[in-house]
């Protein structure tokens, strides 16, 4: 569904989903016509999220709202040019509240792309990406990474990591120090032994991958 209209505690929220502009507008026009009474007098928020709209497109939607007796109060868009265009029309604009999308389903695997994160992921921070994820920094306990492809951490991996989250059993995880709270690859998961040895020996980079339907962790050896 490319258009969703929802009543929330903050008023009506109209979300534009994926799809070609013409199709989305056709659907929106249809939905508004179908719920004409519902929309009368409403101040609506337009969520375009990742989509980019220009001033003419925003003005079109604003006029569409007003022909149905409503008004466009604010725009939520990730793209700053879209937000600027909205403000130029006298409509307030903000970025999505969540920095990372919170998908209810697993990310689509897209192993042609990668996401590089150049900071430490702290407790409570979460990264979900369909492709490979590279972190230059640590992944602290309480942080999580869910990737469609591989996960590489140039630092200490101590949070939760899930590689090949859409079922890719060939995905692997590697880190300079591999000490996750939990490690998942595809549909398998493992966790470190309950009592980590104190006064650990030298920390070596390690690689985790699936071998014979088990997650195997091995020290990285130069070939």
């Amino acid at each position: 569904m490319s258009v969703a209209i929802k009543g929330t505690t903050e008023g009506l929220v109209v979300t534009l989903g994926e799809g070609e502009w013409d199709d989305v507008i056709a659907t929106l026009t249809e939905r508004l016509a179908a719920s004409a009474g519902f929309f009368a007098g409403a101040e609506a928020t337009l969520r375009v999220d990742g989509r980019t709209l220009d001033a003419a497109q925003l003005a079109y939607i604003r006029d569409l709202f007003s022909t149905h007796g409503g008004s466009l109060r604010s725009v939520v868009a990730d793209d700053s040019a879209t937000r600027a265009a909205a403000r130029a029309l006298g409509v307030s604009a903000s970025a999505s509240r969540l920095r990372f999308a919170r998908p209810t389903t697993r990310p689509e695997t897209d192993t042609t792309s990668g996401l590089v994160i150049r900071r430490t992921l702290r407790s409570g921070q979460s990264v979900r990406h369909g492709g490979h994820v590279v972190v230059i920094g640590d992944v602290n306990p309480g942080a999580e990474i869910v990737a469609g492809g591989d996960v590489v951490v140039w630092g200490r991996l101590r949070g939760l990591v899930h590689a090949g989250a859409s079922g890719d059993t060939g995905a692997w995880v590697c880190a300079l120090q591999l000490a996750p709270t939990q490690l998942r690859i595809a549909d398998l998961f493992t966790r470190p032994p309950d009592a980590p040895s104190r006064g650990q020996t030298r920390v070596v980079p390690e690689v985790a991958r699936i071998q014979d339907e088990m997650i195997v962790v091995e020290a990285w050896e130069p070939a």
Binding site: R122, S123, N140, P141
Partner: peptide, 13 residues
């Protein structure tokens, strides 16, 4: 320490 880490992330944001 876990909670402090969470807070530091929020403060950084």
């Amino acid at each position: 320490v876990r909670d402090a880490d969470r807070i530091i992330g929020l403060v950084e944001a």
